[in-house]
Design a protein around this nucleic acid. Structure first.
Lengths: 382, 382
DNA sequence: CTGAAAGCGCTTACAG
DNA sequence: CTGAAAGCGCTTACAG
């Protein structure tokens, strides 16, 4: 009844108890119950029924201590409450659960210190591998260390370039380019851009444009929002549109509030865009809030395509087009890759780039003709 | 380089190595690094620097095997990809992470067999406690067993009545009642209801109404949708409205498609409701799809309040009112309760009932006067 | 304050 | 096919 003096709380029958009851050695009982090694049918049957009678439940901790395998994989997400990561984790869980694996989840909130702490916890818990969206593409010593200690890693959403691991990301450049194409095909020429696009060494817009124009689709070591900005530039270029600095907002932070302010500013300025492309979940949320606050019609005064780490439902409901990542698939693929590595696969690392579906709603339609604002020429004020 | 012959993959320095390097016993090294027991400062310092030099990382498996504590808690959700459970798990993770705990997540998809499998996995992995949304309020032998083996449990969202555990749920009856009140206050009298409301032994509506009318707010052993139906009935009663069977749709399944069909049927019938209350996430999604397909305006031809296991963003975007659960808080509270039990708290079980916020958007406004459909009396056809 | 010894529950070679 | 023994990496009483 009371916990033993060693402090362990739960008891239950151990393999020793089962072996004793079945009249065999623990080795034999282990072989039967663990499904490894041989045992004669009569012995096996005695062991099984003893296990059943005692309500035996294997202790995976003990097994893990010996085999060096815990059958647990760790996931480090920015925020598991975000629809994107929630779906990724679901994909991971589905892929591994029928193989007897567990999934240990942690959040980094895009902060390196938290990520390092999370990785340490996972390693101390002896996970067999880690799936991570690294929050810093340069500082990855903690991940190198994990790798060197034999813990395989799969990077998702982004990939540190100097980390020799498999990775899975969507085709950010291609998807953003396709989004812009939707807009230009519909006749838009003034297409606003709102994104984080944090670039060290390129604070000015011209520098950013020069730098991003050279990026290739599969470029690793580059954060998604920069790749999407690259796609935006490419899309404009495709349509023979020169990037207009007044229509581009690089916020430098991943903040819905900042995006809201930026879109309000864009839309109430002298020559507002007729269409808008938002590069991230937070940007998209901010943009939706702004156009709500402005009472702007979508479609109508504005066409909008959101690149989305959030739930496409909100865009769907709003009648807005969105580019949406196949999150579950990313999770499932990441888990597959990881399990393969855990099983000892030594193939060269793979970098998978997934296509992104664009869920076109009504908002790509060209804008309604704006209400004539100053019919009386020279009215000068309102 | 190569894995040892025992099959364990990862090596790294063990406590033995650290002790050897520091010139002390493993007992002393363990006391220093584990933070238990005494050690002289010089010895401690030698141990710490040896640990640092060797890159020592404690193996929590080994510790767990002895202490009987893994510092891991398990969560069994219906679907971690749903915004509700994703947020719950985030709340759990936040509450436990700074205490060095990990969170192991599993999905039941509301299927008993999967839930049992998930619980077994968690127990074999020796979690210190389980947070679960039980999918079957009657068949809970597997949970009783867990409890008896010393694994504390906290139930969320619903609670099996015969399970002596802490539980956390929202005030389903009160929230639904308040939703209806929003509608009746705005002048609605014909308020439709769409929910799962699966009741054995009450297949007919009259039976269901009689049975639900007697439920009290804190009733356990009753699934949320039934409690919300109860709240709906109470809200109607408050306003002196007799429940109209033609406006009530008990689907018996948790299906957006079924809800969509039900709402289409309701709205295209002879006397459509002027307002609608949906009792679940899937119902809400289906209803939104239906009114989208019908081109019904919200507000306008219809007022709508959704009870929500999904993301309130979609309602917000649609201009719809929603009752939303404080998911993160539920997770955080569940984790707190569980940690307390893990630490040996023997207080009587607590059943926490949380209030639900109603996010009122435009849809509670009374409906616009319907476009006169048959101005020419006797027109007879369209 | 410190160390030798036992042991958590299991798996793994290794003899028989 | 089976068992005795060793051991995974740590913590726990218990002597000193």
């Amino acid at each position: 009844m009371k916990p033993g003096k060693t402090g362990r709380a739960r008891s239950g029958a151990s393999l020793i108890d089962v072996a004793k009851a079945a009249g065999v050695s623990t080795a034999t009982a282990g072989r039967v119950l663990g499904g490894y090694g041989y045992a004669s049918e009569p012995a096996a049957e005695r062991v099984r029924s003893a296990a059943r009678a005692l309500g035996y439940r294997p202790n995976r901790l003990a097994r893990g201590l010996i085999t060096g395998r815990t059958q647990t994989i760790g996931v480090v997400a920015s925020d598991i409450a975000s629809p994107f990561y929630a779906a990724v984790i679901r994909g991971v869980a589905d892929a591994v659960q029928n193989r007897g694996f567990g999934v240990l989840v942690t959040n980094s909130d895009e902060r390196l210190a938290l990520e390092q702490q999370a990785v340490r916890l996972l390693l101390e818990k002896q996970v067999d591998g880690i799936i991570i969206a690294p929050c810093d593409l340069q500082s990855s010593e903690h991940l190198t260390e994990a790798l060197e200690s034999g813990c395989p890693i799969v990077q998702i959403d982004r990939a540190a370039p100097n980390l020799q691991t498999d990775s899975i990301a969507v085709d950010n450049v291609g998807a953003a380019r396709a989004c812009v194409r939707c807009l230009t095909d519909a006749g838009h020429r003034r297409i606003g851009f709102v994104g984080e696009v944090l670039l060290d060494g390129a604070v000015d817009l011209d520098g950013a444009i020069r730098r991003c124009a050279g990026l290739r689709p599969d470029e690793r070591g580059v954060v998604p929002s920069v790749l999407r900005f690259t796609g935006y530039l490419a899309g404009c270029h495709d349509a023979g549109i020169a990037p207009d600095p007044n229509l581009i907002r690089r916020l430098g932070v991943y903040s819905a509030a900042a995006a809201r302010a930026a879109v309000l500013d864009l839309m109430t300025g002298p020559r507002p865009p007729t269409a808008l492309f938002t590069a991230d979940g937070a940007m998209s949320t901010g943009a939706l809030e702004a156009i709500g606050a402005l009472g702007v019609d979508v479609p109508g005064d504005l066409s909008l395509i959101c690149f989305d780490d959030l739930d496409w439902m909100q865009f769907y409901a709003r009648g807005v087009s969105a580019a949406s990542q196949p999150a579950r698939e990313i999770g499932a693929l990441a888990a597959d890759l990881l399990l393969r590595r855990i099983e000892g696969d030594r193939d060269p690392v793979r970098h998978i780039v997934l296509p992104v579906a664009i869920v076109a709603r009504r908002s790509v339609a060209p804008p309604r003709r704006a209400r004539p604002r100053a019919t009386k020429i020279g009215a000068g004020h309102d």
